[in-house]
Simulated scan of single mutants.
Amino acid sequence: MSTNTDSAEPIRIAFMCVQNAGRSQMSTAFAERERDRRGLDDRVEILTGGTQPADHVHEEVIEVMDEAGFDLSDRTPREITIDELQSCDYVATMGCSTLDVGEVGSAVDVRDWALDDPDGADLERVREIRDEIEQRVIALFDEFSVAT
Rank of each mutant, 00 (worst) to 15 (best):
S7Q: 14
L40P: 08
M16G: 11
R12P: 06
L40H: 09
G22W: 06
D122G: 04
T28F: 10
D119V: 15
M94P: 02
M26G: 05
A68K: 06
A121C: 04
Q19A: 15
P10I: 09
T48A: 14
I129M: 05
W113S: 03
L99C: 03
V108Q: 07
G105D: 08
F15C: 02
T3E: 15
P77R: 09
F30H: 02
W113N: 03
R38Q: 06
L40M: 08
E32K: 07
R12C: 14
D55W: 04
D36G: 01
G102F: 00
V44K: 00
S73K: 02
V44I: 12
I13W: 10
L140N: 06
V101E: 13
M94D: 13
T93N: 09
M65I: 05
E143V: 01
R12E: 10
R125F: 10
P53W: 14
E63T: 14
V101P: 04
E59T: 11
T28Y: 13
S27F: 09
I62H: 01
E67H: 08
T76D: 12
N20W: 13
V146G: 11
D41P: 01
F141Q: 02
S87L: 06
I138H: 07
R75Q: 15
E59V: 04
A31C: 07
E143Y: 08
A14T: 00
E132S: 00
L99K: 00
A31W: 03
N20C: 06
M1Y: 10
A21M: 12
D6A: 05
R12I: 11
I13R: 09
E124K: 02
D119C: 12
T76Y: 03
Q25A: 12
E134P: 03
M94S: 06
T48G: 13
R125N: 07
C88Q: 04
D112F: 00
Q135H: 10
C88R: 02
E60P: 03
C88K: 02
S145G: 01
M1N: 07
D83E: 15
E34N: 08
P10H: 02
A114K: 09
I62R: 12
V61I: 03
A54C: 09
D66E: 15
V91I: 10
T28L: 08
L140V: 00
L85C: 07
S106K: 08
G49S: 07
A92V: 14
H58S: 14
R111V: 05
M26Q: 05
V110N: 05
D142P: 04
D112Y: 04
E134A: 13
D131W: 00
R12H: 10
T148L: 12
G120L: 04
I62D: 13
E79Q: 14
R127Q: 09
V108E: 13
D66C: 03
Q25M: 15
T28C: 07
G69C: 03
M1P: 08
D117Q: 07
S106V: 05
D119A: 15
S2D: 08
R23P: 12
